[in-house]
Every structure is written in C-alpha cells, then in structure tokens.
Design a protein around this nucleic acid. Structure first.
Lengths: 196, 196
DNA sequence: ATAATTCGGAACTGATCGGTACCAAAAGGA
DNA sequence: TCCTTTTGGTACCGATCAGTTCCGAATTAT
C-alpha cells in the first residue's frame, strides 16, 4: 500500500514510558518524549494521537512491565511463604534505589501530580493500586503466619502494605536514602512476623 | 518615609501556602498565586523576589502550620501513651480526607514532583521528614509497649511510620477513599500494639 | 515506470509560562 | 506645600508549551 513506519511502535511506547517514568506526566515535554523515543513530532501524533493518549497507552505498558511482575512475585509459589514474597518485593524496591534509580513509581508520581485530576488517569492508577492490593492479599493468604486470619483482617493489612509501597516510591523521588527505606522494610516485616 | 504596603505579608504568605498546597509547586501559576493572595504581580515580586523564593518561604510557613503541630501531637504528654498519639495523628489525617480535603501534604507533593530536583527544596523536605521521624521516635519512646526496645529498633519503626505517613498523603491525592486509608491505619496500629 | 499512499521533518499557531519595565497614585518627611 | 520613596497595576518580554499544517521523500502496488 504505502510507505511503512520506520520505527517500532512497541519500542517507542517503551521509550515513552521511561521518559514519563522519570519526569512525570506534565513535566515530560514533547521534545523530551521525541528525543527519548527517537521519532519526530509528526510521527508521534500520527501513531499516538496526542500526549494524553500516549500516556494512557504508556500506563497499560507500565502495568505489563512493572505491576504484573510485582503481583507475579507476590503470588509466586516458588517462594513458599507469602511473607517472604512481600519482603522480596520491598527489598527489590530498595535495591533499585541503591542501584541509582530514583524514579520511583510511574503511577505514584502520576497520583501525586496534577494528572490525578484527570478522571481516566486516576481511575487507571486506582486500578493498578488495586492489583497491588490483591497481590499483597494473596501473599498474606499464602503465609503460614496469616493463614488463620479473617479475610477482613487481611484486607486491612493489604491496605497498609499498599500505603507502605506508595510511601517508599514517593520517598524515593525525594532522595531519601536506600538505607532509610530499608529500615522501614525491616520494621514492617519484623512486625508482621512477630504478630503470628 | 514612603507609602506603606497595603497587604499583610503574613496573610499573603499563608494564602500562597494554600495555593501551593493544592496545586503543587510547578502547577501553581503566577495568576493562580496572585488570585489566591489577592495582590498583583508587581507586589509579589517586590515582596517575595520570585516564585521559587516565595515557595521556600511558604515551606517554612508550612513547617510552622503543619509539621510542628504534628510533631507536637506526637510529643504531647496529654496523651499518656505514645502509640495513642501516633494513632491520633494518623486518624486526624484520615478525618481530613473524609472532610473533603484531598490536598495531601505540601512537602510530599513537592517530593514527588520536579521540584524534588531542586537541591534546596529537597533539603527542606528531608528536614521536615526528619522532624516527623523524630516525632514518631519520641512517641514510641513514650509508649509502654516500646519502652524497653533499643534505640535502633525505634529508629527502624520511625522510618516505617514516616513511610506510612507519606504513603497516606500521596494516596490522598490519588483519590483513594478515606475508608482505605483508615484500614491501613487500623492495621499498622494493631500490629504495633500486638507486638508488645 | 508510474500512480497512490503514508511517511518523516520542519515551520508555524495560539496560549501560557515566569519575569521585567514602566508609570501613575499614594503616603510620609521636611 | 513639595519632594522623595514605594506602592499597586499594567503592558510587555522571550521562552516554551501542546498541537496543527504542509510538503518533499520514500515505498509499495499496479
């Protein structure tokens, strides 16, 4: 039919995700995105409609690349005790920071900024957070220490763990040290283990 | 000598604080600030140098108006047990959300946004977070349940509580319901009490 | 080869940003 | 009363924003 696209749409979307991840929705300018994606203005608008639509697509990409793996870790039977899965997730977040990645979490940054007033965006954020909560819930259910606990209690604890997760990710952007984040993880895991 | 200022500097600073609190540093435009402060461009630059300087002054105002009272609550001997003080602080945050205030925390929003890359701003944020941490630490020390605990353990728990606080404030902006935040509070307080 | 089609690239639009220059009005000191 | 000083207000500045338009170049189908 006609001239084929010179760039790979999926790769460009991934590149856009990293730009949004680092800068946040509003602070990522078109030049930032075009530079990161290595395409031009015309190509971006042809392929992704506009900046907001691009961001919506990027969020589903983030879901696949970050949220689903995290939930996967929380539900991974290779780690028999669910509490160990939770600790593994939190420690991996700390490790990310220690390796120099201070970007935090794309959805948490979007949640804090003006983008949170966009209903469609905030709905997606809520959905991703709900997935995280379900993951924590599943992990708790798979923990010997919490097997006998009621579903309501597990729900309370899941909300607490989501809050802790978001707090870590937000503090990451504030240049809080990995050591401080690690301390918080140590404390919350110890509390959960002591509870049994 | 000459014509006196027609507006009250302190009131204007407080008004600016509320604008920044709601919109965040970058998303609060000059027109937003001028409107909220009820002064004109010329007056603002005469009195506060520029937007960034205004924000720095606003942060010390926020410290006086929000952080110090919060730390005050955590160290208030009128509530004999420190754990009850921590719960009171967290519940008051939930109540704020339930009353319709979804602005969260000025320093947490600044921490998540691009302002976090401004070293002077992020240093102030860190300082305020450290004050919160010290408050939590003091509250734990004043709790019968944790009186016998080592200072190191208390430090770990304080980091955890700061993280939880920041998480709550961030989730607030993401339109998380007051009920969900309350669940997290119930869980973390229960865990702390059960530990004893 | 040629026609059809869609690409990449750049120039451009209107709006908004933070910040500055300038001015008339107002108030105090002499 | 007159002069000095600082105010509040407005017009303006260059830069940047997201988004549009247009055109030559490239590629496929015929």
């Amino acid at each position: 039919m006609a001239r084929p696209r010179e760039f790979n749409t999926e790769d460009a979307l991934t590149a856009a995700m990293h730009v949004f991840w680092e800068k946040g929705y509003e602070d990522a300018s078109l030049p930032d995105l075009l530079d990161g994606m290595a395409i031009t203005r015309g190509s971006l608008y042809k392929a992704f409609t506009d900046k907001r639509t691009l961001f919506l697509k990027v969020m589903t990409r983030y879901e696949q690349q970050a949220v689903i793996p995290a939930v996967g870790l929380l539900t991974d039977n290779a780690i028999p005790d669910g509490l160990d899965r939770i600790e593994a997730l939190f420690r991996s977040v700390v490790r990310t920071v220690r390796d120099g990645d201070t970007r935090g979490c794309l959805m948490c940054t979007a949640a804090a900024g003006p983008a949170s007033e966009d209903l469609e965006i905030s709905d997606i954020v809520q959905n991703l957070l709900d997935q995280m909560k379900a993951g924590f819930d599943a992990a708790l259910a798979a923990s010997g220490d919490f097997a006998s606990v009621t579903a309501e209690t597990r729900a309370l604890l899941s909300d607490m763990l989501v809050t802790h997760y978001v707090g870590m990710r937000t503090l990451t952007r504030a240049h809080t040290t990995a050591d401080q984040l690690d301390s918080g993880v140590t404390a919350i895991i110890a509390l959960l283990k002591a509870r049994a």
